[in-house]
């Protein structure tokens, strides 16, 4: 529909420019502050134009927050979460759409119920669970009196103390986050739209279920996988609460957590120039991802909304 409303169009442009400014002003000031010396950044008011210390500050921030280590951690964690979520949810979606078995609906509802349990509401018990992932097995052992049984069989006294501590490990950072109801439902929806004829043809040709999954379903899902991967990568990179609890060792800190140590507190030197440089560095990888892969990012964002 073509319609001339020049005044309204101008207002709309003004609104959008205001919106873009709303986004850019904090980023611009971060850039300005990140390019000043520590003396300049404390001067009031802050200058409107950037200084010449940008690269030096980036370097200081990089070293001070040990970003070479924490970026590596962030990349491992973000990619691990992405890959883990995709694999786990592809497999479960395949199972609940293509097989008729007794616990199918039970599995569906179990996965659905996990939507109601965001990690933030069960921080303490989840921490305990991952701090010693063997705890449930220990209960089981206690419950079944395995120790007594062993004594009865072999005559030796044993105490069963199972421990599998995942604090400060990559699995501890990744595993609790890779169950995904959202991704499972996304793939389930997609599988439901795949023509039945494909499966029938594959079966006629003698393909096993896994062969069908690998040679037909997976290639068909590529665009969904790519789109979702971007969202999940951002999700993984921007994790905060879980790494905060789980990285008591500085060497395991992710970029966002490492950045936190750069923020000036009331009792320290207000090095906002370093803090802002660090913030720009830590937001760079996800920003590049959405700028370069915008088309896929949009698809992923709209698809993955529960």
């Amino acid at each position: 529909m073509v319609e001339r409303a020049p005044i309204l169009d101008m207002i709309c442009h003004a609104i959008l420019i205001a919106g873009a400014m709303l986004v850019c002003v904090p980023l611009y000031f971060a850039f300005v502050a990140g390019s000043l010396t520590i003396a300049e950044v404390q001067k009031v008011p802050l200058p409107w134009l950037p200084g010449d210390q940008f690269l030096a500050n980036l370097q200081t921030a990089w070293v001070k927050a040990d970003f070479s280590r924490s970026f590596l951690n962030s990349i491992v964690v973000a990619l691990g979460i992405t890959a883990g979520k995709i694999v786990v949810s592809l497999l479960s979606a395949f199972a609940i759409t293509y097989f008729r078995f007794r616990y199918r609906m039970l599995a569906f509802w179990l996965i659905f119920m996990s939507l109601m349990l965001p990690i933030e509401v069960r921080i303490v018990p989840t921490f305990e669970a991952v701090a010693n992932a063997a705890l449930p097995l220990q209960w089981l052992a206690d419950l079944l009196h395995v120790a007594d049984l062993w004594k009865w069989i072999s005559g030796h006294d044993v105490a069963i103390a199972l421990e599998w501590n995942m604090v400060n490990t990559y699995p501890g950072l990744i595993l609790p986050l890779i169950a995904s109801a959202t991704a499972t439902f996304l793939f389930r929806q997609f599988f439901l739209t795949v023509p039945d004829e494909l499966c029938e043809a594959a079966r006629l040709d003698g393909a096993s279920p896994l062969r069908f999954f690998w040679s037909i379903l997976l290639p068909l899902s590529v665009s969904n996988i790519v789109a979702l991967s971007i969202i999940l990568f951002l999700f993984g990179w921007n994790q905060y609460l879980w790494p905060l609890l789980f990285t008591t060792d500085k060497d395991m800190a992710t970029a966002v957590i490492a950045l936190k140590n750069l923020i000036p507190r009331s009792d320290s030197e207000p090095a906002w120039n370093i803090a802002m440089s660090g913030a720009l560095l830590a937001m760079l990888p996800p920003t590049l991802v959405i700028l370069l892969l915008q088309r896929w990012f949009l698809k992923g964002l709209v698809d993955s909304s529960k």
């Binding site: 949810s89 497999l91 199972a95 008729r100 599995a107 599988f191 499966c199 279920p209």
Partner: peptide, 27 residues
């Protein structure tokens, strides 16, 4: 459930669901 599915065997789907279900149960 897909109209064209792989029938009633419960072994394979259980295996496929195992990673997700284990994580859900434990964490």
């Amino acid at each position: 459930l897909k109209r064209a599915n792989f029938g009633r065997g419960a072994g394979l789907p259980t295996l496929l669901l195992l990673p997700q279900v284990l994580i859900l149960v434990f964490f």
